[in-house]
Design a binder for these strands. Structure first.
Length: 443
RNA sequence: GUCCGAAUAGUGUAGAGGCCUAUCAUGAAGCCCUGUCGAGGCUUCGACCCGGGUUCGAAUCCCGGUUCGGGCGCCA
């Protein structure tokens, strides 16, 4: 028997009206065996759903019935039988089996419950992620994540963006700020890249005009929160002849489109998660950094002065303030002090202490940051120096600015944060298959 | 890094110095049952994180460790 003959249909693709008395094979995990004595039900689960196999004692070969009764939950089986429309069965059909093939027997006890009857801690679930993925809710999260990335690719492609891949192994010590993971590259020191920033800018000099990249980023910070990862997925764009307002418009429209697509294509998954999505209204509210400081100070819980970065508490204060005023969770904070933004953010010509930069926020956390970039090599070099970095380390990057670099802008948005805020997931590890955090390196 | 909290069958839990030979659910094994769909009923199995201390007596109190959770910090 060919392996592909073990499964002719997903359980959800069986239409009882059209397929009555047809022979099918379903394959998957034994979700449950319910033996009532004279009748025995075996529920087979696959990625798309569940199907019921029914064995009536009087009508079934005793050997087959014994085989069904002895199945261990979560084992892999293929069941071949005929479709019988049955109003009493889930999905309106049941399979009357001719043959049950046990392909892989599960050990017992299972490391966790997969039916939703008993909770498991996130730590337990991550230790047995392969089994956790068999839970309907977990499958739903990762199906939606796929839909999010599909929508991002579709949206950006339709806006003329080209998908690129840039190196994750780099020689440059740092752009400043975050620490990097050092690695050995043959006999030299190298690092895992913290972001595609420098490379995507170089592609603007290369004339690709509009690029995006979806890929891993690595940060060696010892942060220990529900919204940080040491390996995350970044969705980055860079676009020529665009200022910060142009790329903000792309960002807010993309986020709205992603929500629309998830609503349109993932209703079953959203229902499984108990999430009711609404599309964020565009354009998103824009407040300046200065206004943000004023808002925070007006609540009296913190006293920030101009030039301070926003604390976690102040992000929540502003997020709730905006939500109470607009009913919207997404907003921009624009015009940040040049000093607290990275060297490549372009200062305003008339107010160099302010930069053409922005953060895109969700009520609960920062999702994205971006800016129009400096495209003048001399200005860029002096900004690198004034942030205490050595321009020699950036020579590979600066060269691209000396031979025709168009003005450009871009942003990066954290894929995991986009998904978790969309679904109301409280811990970022829930939306990563195998998260890498301060302590977890396996599985 | 720091502050707070937690750790009990495979999983999730109850437990406030003797009522613990440790509760309940789920699970597993067995029996009964012809329409279940978190099936139901009966029986059985399975656990106090590690090390020290206090006490006549510790799952329970104290100290140290480990691990986990949460807050903050750190984080273009």
């Amino acid at each position: 028997m060919l392996l592909k003959d073990l499964r002719t249909h997903y359980t959800s693709k069986i239409d009882p009206a059209e397929m009555a008395d047809k022979k099918v094979s379903v394959a998957g995990w034994v979700h449950e065996v319910r033996d009532l004595g004279g009748i025995c039900f075996v529920v087979v689960r696959d990625r798309e759903g569940r199907g019921q196999v029914t064995l009536v004692k009087k009508k079934t070969d005793p050997e087959l019935l014994e085989k069904a009764r002895g199945l261990v939950r979560e084992s892999i089986v293929s069941v071949t039988g005929t479709i019988k429309p049955e109003a009493k069965a889930p999905n309106g059909y049941e399979i009357i089996p001719e043959q049950i093939t046990l392909l892989n027997e599960a050990e017992s006890p299972l490391p966790m419950d997969t039916t939703g009857k008993v909770d498991a801690d996130l730590d337990t679930r991550l230790d047995s992620r392969f089994m956790d993925l068999r839970r309907e809710k977990t499958t739903a999260v990762f199906t939606i994540r796929h839909e999010v990335l599909k929508a991002v690719r579709g949206f950006l492609s339709s806006y003329g963006f080209i998908e690129t891949s840039t190196p994750k192994v780099v020689a440059t010590a740092t752009e400043g700020g975050t620490s990097l993971f050092p690695i050995t590259y043959f006999d030299r020191e190298a690092f895992l890249n913290q972001s595609p920033q420098l490379f995507k800018q170089m592609l603007m000099s290369g004339g690709l005009d509009r690029v995006f990249e979806i890929g891993p980023i690595f940060r060696a910070e010892e942060h220990d929160t529900r919204r940080h990862l040491n390996e995350a997925t970044s969705i980055d764009i860079e676009a020529s002849f665009c200022d910060h307002f142009d790329v903000m418009e792309i960002l807010e429209n993309m986020v709205a489109y992603v929500y629309e697509q998830v609503i349109a294509n993932c209703s079953r998954q959203l229902e499984a998660l108990g999430v009711e999505l609404t599309v964020p209204q565009t354009p998103f509210m824009k407040i300046t950094y200065g206004e943000a400081i004023t808002i925070v100070n007006s609540y009296g819980e913190e006293s920030l002065k101009w030039g301070d970065d926003l604390s976690t508490l102040s992000e929540h204060t502003i997020g709730n303030h905006v939500f109470n005023e607009t009913g919207q969770s997404h907003y921009f904070i624009i015009d940040w002090p040049t000093e607290i933004k990275p060297f490549y953010a372009k200062p305003y010509e008339d107010k160099p202490e302010l930069s053409k930069s922005f953060d895109m926020m969700h009520r609960t956390m920062e999702l994205s940051s971006g800016a129009q970039r400096i495209h003048d090599p001399e200005q860029l070099k002096s900004r690198i120096e004034s942030q205490g970095l050595n321009p020699e380390g950036f020579e590979f990057y600066l060269r691209a600015f000396r031979y025709g670099m168009p003005p450009h802008g871009g942003w990066g948005i954290g894929c995991e944060r986009l998904v978790m805020t969309m679904l109301g997931v409280e811990n970022i590890r829930d939306v990563v298959l195998f998260p890498r955090d301060r302590r977890r390196l396996s599985p």
